[in-house]
Structures are given as structure tokens and as C-alpha cells.
Simulated assay, not measured.
Amino acid sequence: MSAPTEYSAPLSSSASLATASLVSNGPILLATDLSARCDRALDRAVVLAKARGVPLIALHVLESAPATASPAAPSWRRLSEDHRELARYRLGLDLDDPELAVEIHVESGDAADRIVELATRHGCSLIVTGIARDESLGKLLLGSTVKKLVRHVAVPVLVVKNRPHGGYRDAVVATDFSPESRHALQVAAALFPSTSLLLFHAYDTPFGMRRLAEGLGDDAQRDAQLEMDEFLAATPDLPAGVPARTLVQDGEPETLLSDYVFAQRCEMVVAGTRRIKGIMGAMVGSVAERLLEALPCDVLLVRGADPDSK
């Protein structure tokens, strides 16, 4: 495995302010299904809200009951006012913190739709959610819900898998040198100014060409590193020292990134996503979608900036 390259960004007195302006100072939205695994997302959302000094909005969505639901089922398993009050009571206990401004919402309907509406209405700066499911208290499906969120709202989505132990110390920003990955790097720098960021790129030498000629691998490595340097030189408004390091490797992106994250015990990976217009609608890029499933760490998905929003 090649060693990361130290990177020193050019000094700029306005870079930190310009980067910070990429994200709002709006509240953080926690979307939870109240399962045990989503407790990790709740804990992370609290840590982030305190660190950023912003309010925390907690949302639980009651989804429609199955048509076959037994009328004899306990009230807490039915979509009723009792169920709604139980959810509100549990969130109130979990978020009882005098140092935190909290607003609790318990709503009915489609989880992704309610999250998008609330995040838009309150101008949220970040959506935090987990990966668990709980049939008795609604469910938040990782795949379909997250894809729908990225499709319909430009707010970054943080999918939490691990229990937090303070703020993120380090994170890996995956890049393919696209505008979306550039925007993801800028947003990560703004959201996590105290986190050491490694910019990671995996390149794939064409099959059968790897050892065709002596030194071909070295040439590919140098070309990839040069492209990395050019990408950073063309990325405006990065604070000094961001990213702290860069790393280019030859191979399949998801495998290399997963191996690196596991070996280095990285806490978060940041990935940009594309918004595709036209008949295909909008979707999370296939690589980012696979990363959600493969990575053992938290994943921040950042949708590319809309051209008409610049």
C-alpha cells in the first residue's frame, strides 16, 4: 500500500470563510426509527449540534400500518395517539440535555418525504440518520430512504454506523476528480473544520496493461498523483492544511477504500453524489451507494451543487 502524501494548501485569508459559507448554520435534523442502532445516530447528532452550536430537530415518522394488522394488537404497535405520544416521550428522555436546544417532531407518512419537508422548512445544515429497522416503531430503510433524500434535498446526509467518541478525528474524502467530489471536499471542510481530511483516489490500470512494460505501474502512479495535484490546485476556497494528506492507489475503488478504512480505523468517509436529470430522474451514484453497504464507518453523502444555484 502506497503511503499518503502530505499536502499543504496555499494560504488564503478568506478561504476558511468562503468554505464555511458552503453550508448553512441551520439546525441539524436527526431522523430516527427509535431502534437501538439508531441510538448511535442520536448520539452523533447531539455531539455535532453541540459542536456547531445549532439546534437539534428530532424526527420520527409513523408509517402506515399494514392492512393485515390485528385490531387486537397492543396500542403501542398501532398508529394511534398512544403510539405518537410514546415516540415523543422516548425522544424527550433521550434528548433531555440543558445544553441543547431540541425540537421534537412525530409525524405520519413516508419517511423520506417527511424528512425532506422538515429539512427544507427549517433550513437544516445536515441530516443525520442510522441504518436500523424496527417494525414496531416504523422503519427507516437505508437504501431507498437515503437515495430519496439525496434526490430531493441538497442537504448533506450523514449515515451513522458507529458509536461516537467525541468529534471526528479523521475522515477520508473519496474523489474521482469530478465536480461532485470537489463539492463534497469543500462541504466536508466546512462541516468538520477540526477533522483531519485525507483525499483518496483509486485509479484502475487497464486489464492486461499492468506489467506490459517495465515501470508502467510507476508511470500510472505518477499520472494519478499529478491529476490529484491539478484537481486540488483547481479547487477554490480550501482552508490551509485541507486536505492534510492525499493518497492515490491502483485498483477497485470500493475494495481499496474499505481496506484502508478498516486498516486505519477511519471514522468517516465522505462521498459526492450525482443528480441525474431527465427520464432517469435523480439517483445516488452507484459507487456511493455501494460504499454505504461496504464501509464499516460512518458515511457522509454530499449531493453535487446544482448549476442554477451558483
Rank of each mutant, 00 (worst) to 15 (best):
G215F: 05
R37A: 13
F262Q: 09
K147I: 09
T195G: 07
G304H: 07
H183E: 10
A132I: 06
D308E: 10
R88F: 10
G281S: 09
T120F: 02
I28W: 03
G130T: 09
I279K: 06
A3Y: 04
D306A: 13
S258K: 12
A188K: 04
N162S: 10
D39T: 11
R40V: 03
A15M: 03
L100V: 06
Y168F: 15
R163F: 04
H122T: 13
R133F: 05
P55C: 04
T32D: 03
A171C: 06
E107C: 08
V146H: 01
A263T: 14
R222D: 12
K148P: 00
S12D: 15
V242H: 07
R77S: 12
R90L: 11
E85A: 10
P239F: 07
G215N: 07
H201L: 07
D223L: 12
L91R: 04
F207T: 14
V155A: 12
C297Y: 05
A58F: 00
A18R: 11
P4M: 01
T5N: 00
M268W: 08
P71Y: 05
F177T: 07
A45K: 00
K310M: 09
S125M: 01
S64G: 09
E85K: 11
Y260A: 03
L216Y: 12
A20T: 03
A271L: 15
D82S: 10
W76V: 11
L59C: 06
Q225V: 02
R151E: 13
V299N: 06
A15V: 05
V116M: 02
L197S: 05
L185E: 03
A15E: 04
S194T: 15
A49D: 00
M209Y: 14
A132Y: 05
Q186H: 02
V187C: 05
L140M: 13
F192D: 02
V261W: 08
S14Q: 13
R40Q: 14
G26V: 12
E252F: 11
E289W: 04
A132N: 10
V146A: 01
R275N: 15
E6T: 01
A282G: 10
G217T: 01
L79P: 06
S16Y: 03
L30G: 00
E180W: 03
A45I: 00
T68N: 13
D298N: 13
D223T: 08
A45V: 01
